[in-house]
Amino acid sequence: MFHLLTTWKITMPLSEIADGRIAPRFGIKLDNISKHYGDHVVLDDVSLHVQPGTVTALIGPSGAGKSTFLRCINLLERPDSGTIQVAQHTIEPGKDVSSRDLAALRRTVGMVFQSFNLFPHMSALKNISFPQQKVLGRSKEEADERSMQLLERVGLKEKASQHPGRCSGGQQQRIAIARALALDPGIMLFDEPTSALDPEVGLEVLAVMRELAADGMTMIVVTHEMQFARDVSDTLVVMADCKIIEQGDPRAIMSDPQEARTRRFLRAVLER
């Protein structure tokens, strides 16, 4: 694993993603995560183990706690209790989290949001380069080179100098994916990445995500795209009422759900 990392650091070819010579892949273990706002429980003792290089799709009715759970993984939401194990770090969010652990966690885990959240005052290129310079300490030239590679990869090289306001939603989301990838994360989180896009534009984002999955990136995806969940994910996780109610092979669950709640949800999304 280590020599892979070093060769990749020196050459830094874009193809590393295509032919699998990417930064070390990480799995992540989340155990007994609970969270509530006041009396209102949002996550009730949720555990999930994700193997390196796999794609996990999180589905379920809205209000089930999918997004909150995803946001607990990189501590955008602070769970009340539980443990997070990633990249040799064990984090207990219920207690004080050292800034070193937090930094390590956020370096390992990249995130893509439903609303893109690109920085509107920076060009597409700057959006991708700026975090590299600040977080990884890359020089402007190194960062820009890497950014251009990634922009090309998501098919938006010609948008480098444009500000996000001039890009379509699908383009913005692809830039946002490039921005997260530029920091060489071992795991990528996607929070309903296509929900703010019309179906046709969503396809171009899904295409990038499929490619990323094929490259072997560890991915956790909250989504309503059932097709994507079935075809691309290795594990399907169904959440309802603040809990994981069912998980396993996506095709098996979709064709033969064990839980009544899952059946009800799947009927609603598949048979429309």
């Binding site: 955008l76 370096r107 885990v109």
Partner: peptide, 15 residues
């Protein structure tokens, strides 16, 4: 400034 801006910056690991 939209909340997502600060969240994105946090998720990227910016100080």
């Amino acid at each position: 400034v939209p909340r997502g801006q600060g969240e994105a910056a946090n998720a990227l690991g910016l100080t």
